[in-house]
Simulated scan of single mutants.
Amino acid sequence: MAENKEEQKAPRIKPIIEAADSLSLGISMVVAVLMGVGIGFILKNMTGVFWTLWIGVFIGVAAAVLNVYKAYSKQYKSYEELAKQPRYAIKKELQDDEDDEEDYGEKNR
């Protein structure tokens, strides 16, 4: 009985967590760039060379791009899992319909 309750709670919470994860993508991009600028500022103060600030900016932008790539690959993976379900296999049905239409057109000629 306790296992059944845990199974019922998990699906309710999971979509909320996934939605929060998707919303946090924009925030994580901003935070990554700001952290990179902070690293660059620290490097500039430690070395006294101005261009080290740009190293930090580059690190922050690279981290933001990595966050976007990770989010994209996660969404693409879930899309692939969804596409495998027969309920959503419309691509194959459309190809079958196109083949039928071609045969129909050839028979009338």
Rank of each mutant, 00 (worst) to 15 (best):
K44Y: 07
I42R: 10
L66K: 15
F41N: 15
K44T: 08
T47Y: 04
K44W: 05
V33L: 13
I39N: 00
L66G: 14
K44D: 06
S28W: 04
F50V: 15
L53S: 03
I59E: 08
A32C: 06
V33W: 02
T52R: 00
N45E: 15
V31W: 02
A62R: 06
L66E: 14
G38R: 04
V33E: 01
G40T: 01
F41T: 13
M46R: 14
M46Q: 09
F50C: 12
M46C: 12
K44L: 10
M29P: 09
M35H: 02
A64Q: 07
L53V: 04
V65M: 02
S28V: 10
G40D: 04
M35F: 13
A64I: 10
A64V: 11
F41I: 13
V49P: 01
A62Q: 08
V31K: 01
G40K: 00
A64W: 09
G36C: 07
V31M: 06
G60R: 04
T47H: 04
V31T: 10
G40H: 02
I59C: 05
A63Y: 10
A63W: 11
I59H: 00
W51L: 13
I55F: 01
G60K: 00
L53Q: 09
M35C: 12
G36T: 00
L53P: 08
A63Q: 02
M35N: 09
M35K: 11
M29Y: 08
A62M: 13
V65N: 06
I39C: 03
G38Y: 05
F58A: 12
N45F: 15
V65H: 05
K44F: 10
F41K: 15
V49G: 02
V61Y: 02
G36N: 00
T47P: 03
L43V: 08
V49L: 11
W51F: 12
G38S: 10
V37T: 05
A64D: 01
W54C: 08
F58M: 07
G36W: 00
V57W: 05
L66W: 15
A64H: 03
N45M: 11
M35P: 08
I42L: 10
S28P: 09
F41A: 15
L34S: 14
A63C: 11
L43S: 09
K44E: 10
A32M: 08
V33N: 03
V31Y: 04
G56P: 06
L66I: 12
A62E: 07
V49K: 01
I59Q: 01
N67T: 14
V57C: 00
K44N: 10
M46S: 14
I39L: 01
G36A: 03
I39S: 00
N67I: 13
